[in-house]
Every structure is written in structure tokens, then in C-alpha cells.
Simulated assay, not measured.
Amino acid sequence: MINLIFDYLKISTMCFHSKQTKLALEVENRFNAKIEKAEFFQPQENINGFNFAKNPIITDNKPNIIQHYNWGLIPSWSKDEEIKKLTLNARIETIEEKPSFKNLINKRCLVIANGYYEWQWLDSKGKNKIKYEIGIGNDDLFAFAGLYSQWVNNSTGEIKDTYTIVTTQANALMSEIHNIKKRMPIILKPEDEKKWLNHNPINDFAFPYDVNLIATKIHPDTLTLW
């Protein structure tokens, strides 16, 4: 499993760090939805996917409710949770082929955020990197395109609701920043959020589908190493 994870990190789609710093009322107003369990809602400057924490999402079957699912999708057929290390992202180009995702094409969600982080490599091995925060401007809220699943632990009966963020080919800006793998998460246009939830053809959201992104270089003094 360790080697599998290492290989995944070398070829992966690499949207692993995001943020959601807005207060509850602003999030509810932006998405015209109510937070289901306020005790789970916590604004965060740094959301590390590898912590597999609960984050706010909106699913297609409850479009007026903001729920909290764990990042790192666990398919219903999985024997254990280990697969979540490999399913933080889903490549839209192969989403209909991969066993983890192909049966979830119509289990869609909006992953709520107001920014994500990416590193520009200055050498071929990534020893020297520049960190950027990417968003749509003005620190505004947006939604990543996501898929979700429910998994039951056969040993304990515990139910886990989980999600993945869908990614696509990088646009011109992200090709310069994510300059090795050249990928980016799919950020939905506000007018297309309902289309995603309503199961419009998934390829409608693949590159060259795009929104205007703004990248801000993070000063080294503020760099957090995860």
C-alpha cells in the first residue's frame, strides 16, 4: 500500500489543500441552503485532504441542505477505508472508467470553498517551490464539482459519507503554477452549479470549461508545510 500511495502522489491530480473561511450565514446565503448540523461547521484557513476531515458540501438529493462529508471517497464496495488516500481527487477524463467513480457519475455534490492552494515547482524534483492561493477573486465563495458515496464498515456498522473533488486539464494560468502535472480542480460557474447537481453530461464540465481564476503568491514567511 505504501508504494501504491507513493505512485499515486507522483501521478495524481493534486488538489489536496483548500480553505473555507466564511461564517455560516454567509455560506447559507450564497448557496441558498441551510447548514444541517451547526456543530460540524468550522471555518478553516487550511483544509488538508490527508486529514480526511468533514467539510461542507451540498448533494444532489438535498440541494437546500449543507451537510458535512469526509474528504476522501470510500466506494460502497470497499473492504476498508484505506482507499480514501487515493480518492481525494477524480480525473474527469477517466471518471467513467475507474471502479471507484464510474458508478457515482450521478451522485454529485458541490464542495464549498473560497480558495485552494497549489505549489509551483522551480526544479524537476519539487525541492524548491512557490506556494499560491487560487480563487475567483475578492475571497468569494465558490463550489468545486464533486462526487459522493456512502460506506458502511461491516465490522462496526459505522456509516461514513465521503466525497472527492473532480479535476480537469489546467487552464493557461494553472499550467504555469501547477507546471509539472498541469491539473486543476473544476470550479463551477455559479449559474452551472444546478446543472452539475441536475446531472448534465459530465463532459460538459471538462476542459476547456473554465472560470476566471486569480492566483496570489504566498509570502515564504507565511508558508505552512503540510
Rank of each mutant, 00 (worst) to 15 (best):
K54E: 10
P99I: 08
W77Y: 11
N32P: 15
K125P: 08
N61H: 10
A143F: 06
P43I: 02
A33F: 05
F101I: 13
P43H: 02
D161Q: 14
K37D: 13
N103T: 09
A143R: 07
F41D: 06
I65V: 14
D123T: 04
A145V: 10
G135A: 12
E97W: 06
Y116M: 00
L104D: 05
I65S: 15
D139P: 08
D60Y: 07
I105N: 12
W151P: 00
I47D: 01
E158A: 15
A33I: 04
W71T: 01
N154L: 14
Y148W: 12
R91G: 07
I35E: 02
E81H: 15
L122S: 00
I83S: 00
W151D: 08
I65L: 15
P43A: 06
I130Y: 10
W151E: 05
N106A: 03
F144D: 01
A145T: 00
Y117M: 01
G115M: 01
K54R: 14
S149G: 11
L86E: 01
W77T: 02
K129D: 04
Y117Q: 06
N114I: 07
L104M: 10
W151S: 05
S76H: 09
L110A: 00
G157Y: 01
N154E: 12
E97V: 11
I95M: 10
D139A: 07
D161M: 12
K37R: 13
K79S: 14
W71N: 08
R91L: 06
T94A: 04
N138W: 06
G126Y: 00
I66R: 13
I74P: 11
N70R: 15
D139G: 12
P75S: 02
N70T: 08
L86S: 06
E96K: 15
I112R: 04
W121C: 14
E158L: 14
N55D: 07
A145I: 02
I58M: 08
K129S: 02
K37G: 11
K62M: 12
A143I: 07
K98H: 09
G146K: 01
L122Y: 08
A145R: 00
Y148Q: 13
I66A: 12
L141K: 02
D161T: 11
Q42S: 08
L86T: 04
P43L: 03
E93G: 10
K160A: 13
Q44F: 02
K79W: 08
K34C: 14
G115Q: 01
K62I: 12
E93R: 10
E45S: 09
N128K: 14
I57N: 03
S78W: 00
I159S: 13
D60W: 04
N103G: 11
K129G: 04
S155L: 15
E97M: 10
T87V: 00
I92Q: 07
C109E: 02
I66W: 04
A90Q: 07
N61K: 09
N103L: 11
A90Y: 02
K160E: 13
Y132T: 12
E82M: 14
Q42V: 05
Y116A: 05
K127D: 09
A33S: 15
A143C: 09
L141T: 02
E82S: 15
F144I: 05
L110V: 00
P56V: 04
E96Q: 15
G135R: 06
L104Q: 11
